[in-house]
Every structure is written in C-alpha cells, then in structure tokens.
C-alpha cells in the first residue's frame, strides 16, 4: 500500500510539471502584449516598458521564466500580478466561494446521481428506468449557459425561490441554484454510469449466490450490489470534482459569484499571465490530489486492486 501511494505521488509530480509547463507556454503564446495593455490607450514610454519587462522577467526565455516560477512555488510564492498584488492573496479571497460551490454541486451529483442510477438499475426496463434515462438525455443536451440563465430567470427572478445573484445570503440558499445548474451534466453521467454498473452487478453469479443464501433483498442490494457498483462510479466522480472546481467559470459569471472561475476568466481577458498560471496550478494540484484520494478509496473498496 505504501509503495502504491509513493508510486502515485511520483506520477503526480511528473503530471504536475508537464501541465504547468504547457500552461506557461500557452500563456506566453497568447496574442497581445500585457505590458502595453497596462497603459490603456496611451503608449508607455520605452524605458518604463523595459523596466516592467525586466521586473516581471518577461525579457527572459520562456523556459527560464518557468524555472524561476517553479523556484518561487517551492518557497510558497505563486507570483505577483502586473498590478503588484500577490496572486496567492487574490486567490485566497476567492477559493472559499468556488470550493463551496463545487462541493455543493458534487454533493448533489453523488446523492441524486447514485440514487437515480440505483433505482433505474434495479428496475431496468420499467417505466421509472425509462423516465430516468430520458431525463438524463435531456439534461445533458442543454448547454450550461442556457440552463443557468433560465434557472436564474424562472426560479430566481419570477418565483423568487432562490436569490438571483451574489453570495449575500450565504450557504446553502445562495449556492443551491448555481450548484444544481452545474451538477446537472455530471448528475446525468453519474446516474447512467451507476445504472449500467448496477445492471451488470445484478447479472453476476455472485448475486445469484447471495440470493441462494437466502439473504434479504435489502442486504443483497445495500451491502453487495452498492459496493461493487460504486467502484466505477467513484472514478468518474473524482474526475468530475476536478471539472467542477475548474469549470465553474460560466456559472460564477451568470450568478455573479466571486469565485476562482471568475478570477481566471478575468485574468485571461486581461492577459494576466501570473494569475492565469497561479489559478491553473492550484486547480491542477486540487485535481491531482482528488484523483489520488479516489484511487486509494477504490483500492479500499476493491481488494483486487489492493493486491495487484
């Protein structure tokens, strides 16, 4: 087990280096000059530009910039924005919003997705199964943007069930609606994955054995079918948590939630290289860590992985 964790951590370092390098290169390749943009419509004096370039090391080759950035990271420094703010400080204010939003959405996915999938799987072919299946198809085919705006209009503005925008009312009221909107897509996938998994498990010989042992159906499903079916679903849920943390851009925009997604969006628009790299790096770390965690959880659930 320890060897497994060590190996996974080593993998994690390699992936981390690769992904941050790619982001660095991509930010560098963005069209437009951020220093020139700082001056607005008025062109900056050449000596000012040169000084700014030197201060932010923009005159160095990209690889050298990357290594310098990594060096800073090791000392806990995520870099400085062109306005002179610390990237870490800017993110610190926004993380709680995004994390709350993502975790709320994830919770909705886990609860509803697993439940709907289980019901559909246990009644494969019945009316309830078909309804759930049709529902998931509809849900996945609506663009997040459309869903977000309509939800805001109907449930927020017209019916006033939820606040229209902002985080003023705190958790859960302010977060439920945007969380539900981003959860819909993953929810449909979770439900379908769970359904297939349950159907497969119910067909196995060992479920027949459990029934032949005289176990109550509640035990067969609750103890055995649930655990076996959860293993593939869990892997998806882990990847999805990463997606939720990074993919809240649109929803944070629509509902005006001051989260990391919004920060990233603004940074990309303003060519804020250090912020883009900083936010992305943080998201990657979160993503890699959740994956590691789920891998370990899967090996707890499935002894065959553990003894590999």
């Amino acid at each position: 087990m320890t060897r497994r964790v060590a190996r996974r951590l080593a993998d994690l370092v390699v992936v981390f280096l690769g992904v941050t390098l790619i982001i660095h290169l991509m930010v560098f390749a963005l069209p437009g000059d951020p220093i020139a943009a700082l001056g607005g419509d008025r062109p900056l004096a050449p000596n000012v530009v040169a000084e700014l370039r030197e201060r932010y090391h923009l005159d160095e080759p990209v690889l050298q910039q990357y290594l310098r950035y990594l060096g800073g990271l090791l000392q806990g420094d995520l870099g400085t924005t062109f306005q002179g703010q610390s990237v870490a400080d800017r993110m610190a204010l926004r993380w709680p919003v995004t994390i709350t939003l993502a975790l709320t959405a994830w919770g909705i996915e886990v609860l509803l997705g697993v439940l709907l999938g289980l019901v559909a799987g246990l009644r494969a072919g019945a009316v309830s199964d078909r309804l759930i299946l049709a529902g998931t198809v509809v849900a996945t085919s609506i663009p997040v943007f459309v869903l977000a705006v309509s939800a805001q209009l109907w449930l927020g503005a017209r019916l006033s069930w939820f606040p229209v925008a902002g985080t003023g009312e705190g958790w859960p009221t302010a977060y439920l609606l945007p969380a539900a909107v981003i959860a819909v897509f993953g929810l449909a996938s979770v439900a379908r994955l769970m359904r297939g998994s349950v159907v497969d498990t119910l067909r196995t010989d060992y479920v027949r054995t459990l029934r032949a042992k005289g176990l109550r159906e509640r035990q067969v499903v609750g103890v055995h079918v649930m655990r076996s079916s959860a293993i593939p679903v869990l892997t998806f849920l882990a990847i999805d948590l990463g997606y939720l943390l990074g993919g809240t851009v649109v929803v944070e925009g629509v509902f005006n939630l001051p989260g990391v997604g919004q920060l990233l969006f603004q940074a990309i628009r303003a060519h804020e290289g250090p912020t883009i790299v900083g936010v992305s790096t943080a998201l990657i770390v979160v993503f890699l860590l959740t994956n590691l965690l789920v891998d370990l959880l899967a090996s707890v659930l499935d002894p065959r992985i553990r003894h590999e």
């Binding site: 196995t204 010989d205 060992y206 027949r208 054995t209 459990l210 029934r211 032949a212 042992k213 005289g214 176990l215 109550r216 159906e217 055995h224 655990r227 076996s228 293993i231 659930l301 499935d302 002894p303 065959r304």
Partner: peptide, 23 residues
C-alpha cells in the same frame, strides 16, 4: 428467502465467480 440457504442450499459451477470478489 427463509428456505434458501437454511433448508435448501446451492453450489454453482464457476466457484470464483460465485463469491463476491470485494468481501
């Protein structure tokens, strides 16, 4: 369900598949 296992028990062909692999 009360009869199964207690009064009439079964053994199947594929023994490795007939046991739940995760317990």
């Amino acid at each position: 369900q009360d009869v199964r296992g207690r009064r009439v028990a079964m053994v199947f062909q594929d023994s490795s598949g007939a046991l739940d692999p995760v317990f």
